[in-house]
């Protein structure tokens, strides 16, 4: 019976962890998305976006596979030195990737099945 309680404890702990981790990942992805949107319109926001990405990258890597993170890594590099069109294109792609992370981590029938 003791093991039964341990098993229930593990399930409860994993459920809680998954709930909080999902919320945290979604919140960080949302923040990145907003900053990327802002960077699309104003290049002054690029630094804030890259800073946010650098601080969140390791956190994301705990929960999301590298394949989903590498494109953002690639897009955030050298944004200060590219033309306005290229910058807007990169930022738009970052917005799309951030949305993808949010969708990937969220609980939905699409993801489950």
């Amino acid at each position: 019976m003791k093991r039964g309680y341990i098993a229930l404890g593990i399930i409860a702990a994993i459920s809680l962890l998954s709930y909080f981790a999902t919320s945290a990942v979604a919140a960080r992805a949302e923040k990145l998305e907003q900053l990327a949107k802002a960077a699309c319109t104003d290049e002054k926001n690029i630094q804030a976006m890259t800073d946010e990405w650098e601080s969140s990258r390791n956190f994301f890597s705990f929960f999301v596979s590298h394949a989903h993170l590498e494109p953002i890594d690639y897009r955030t590099e050298g944004l200060d030195y590219v033309s306005k069109d290229e910058r807007q294109e990169s930022c738009a792609e970052i917005v799309a990737y951030a949305k993808e992370i949010k969708e990937l981590i969220s609980l939905s029938l699409y993801n489950v099945f």
Partner: peptide, 23 residues
């Protein structure tokens, strides 16, 4: 490329489900 936590949690969950089913 795969996050370790996904596997670790799945292993723990499987063990818990196994114990629970035996109880």
């Amino acid at each position: 490329d795969m996050p370790l936590i996904n596997s670790a949690l799945s292993v723990l969950l499987l063990v818990a489900l196994s114990i629970l089913s035996s109880v």
